[in-house]
Amino acid sequence: MQKTLFCLKVGHRLDFSMSDSNSTDFTNPSTFILLGIPGLEAAHVWISIPFCTMYSIALLGNFIILFIVKRETSLHVPMYYFLCMLSVSDLILSTAILPKTLSIFWFHSREIDFGACLTQMYFIHTFLSIESGIFVAMALDRYVAICDPLRHSTVLTNPVVAKIGLAVVLRSGLLVLPTPFLARRWPYCRTNIIPHTHCEHMAVVKLACADTRISSYYGLSVVFLVTGLDAIFITASYTQILRAIFSLPRKDARLKTFGTCGSHLCAILAFYIPALFSFLTYRFGHSVALHFHVLIANAYLLMPPMLNPIIYGVKTRQIRDRLIWLSTHKVP
């Protein structure tokens, strides 16, 4: 039966055919319907090619990072422990999104269980917050290594690194935890069709036929408490780092010291710039086409897991040298 969904933004009309996509009243839908990229349904197979490529690179690259750091004892230091945490977070984040997205593109498997949708929402936002926290931890490591190198081994011991990692996970998990519970309590009586490739928080909440300002305000609060504060801490750390670098007397020493944190800076920019662009587009780009919103949201989630192992593999000499050695020698 042909149904027409008028989206939340005026001017976007989506045609969707599926017998299970009821628009009748229901309080708690058993399933949601993910449309994929609205307006570009005919190109889903072609769009899946770069998506699948990014996912494959993310999987291969992050597993290589984990493998190299595990095997190379000289890399068993705080910087690479944090890098391993980032790789694990990247693997979980990309896996929480891509398999379902590709099933929509390839097999038109648009249905997702209500509970599974909320679980996916929780994992996406939790691991985005974890990545942001790991970048703060890495900035702290670079700050101590450059600004107070003699105390680096005594300040950032293995137990301290483990406690920092645990604190990052607990902070993110607990702060994001209320979002699926808030989303679950709203009545959904308009439609169960989500014009997206995954269960993004506000994309789900906006389907509710109730005053959902609590969810909206809480989501914004988490963004500012996590991403906003993390960005401030990272900026403060690198302000001190740059001051220390430019105070060095020799140019080659300045370049060498700056090179030790170059990969981290590139990874930070690859994470925060798409995140900021996606946030501004979603909140204020009301005249932007819906399919562009969805594409930007996917790029924001998929690009960092793909780029991080490339950035660290190219910029970090120890990883690059070990990778070259592994590719030219038989692994014992």
Rank of each mutant, 00 (worst) to 15 (best):
T227H: 15
D252H: 08
Y238H: 10
I268L: 14
F271I: 02
P180S: 08
V176A: 01
A253G: 02
V223S: 06
T227V: 15
T227L: 08
I214R: 10
R243A: 06
P195K: 02
H286M: 05
D230L: 05
L255G: 01
H198W: 11
L242I: 14
T235Q: 03
S221T: 12
M202A: 00
F258S: 10
L248P: 02
H286F: 12
L229E: 06
A210P: 05
T235L: 12
I241L: 13
A236S: 01
I268Y: 12
I193C: 12
N192D: 12
C209W: 01
S216V: 10
N192H: 13
V205M: 00
F258D: 02
V222D: 13
H264Y: 10
H286K: 07
L174S: 12
T227D: 15
A210Y: 14
D230T: 03
G285C: 05
R190I: 04
L269P: 04
L265S: 04
S237W: 11
L248W: 03
L269F: 13
S278H: 07
A270H: 07
G219N: 14
V176N: 09
G285Q: 04
R171D: 07
R250F: 15
S215H: 15
I245E: 11
I194Q: 14
F271P: 00
I241F: 13
F279E: 00
A267Y: 08
L255R: 09
G262K: 10
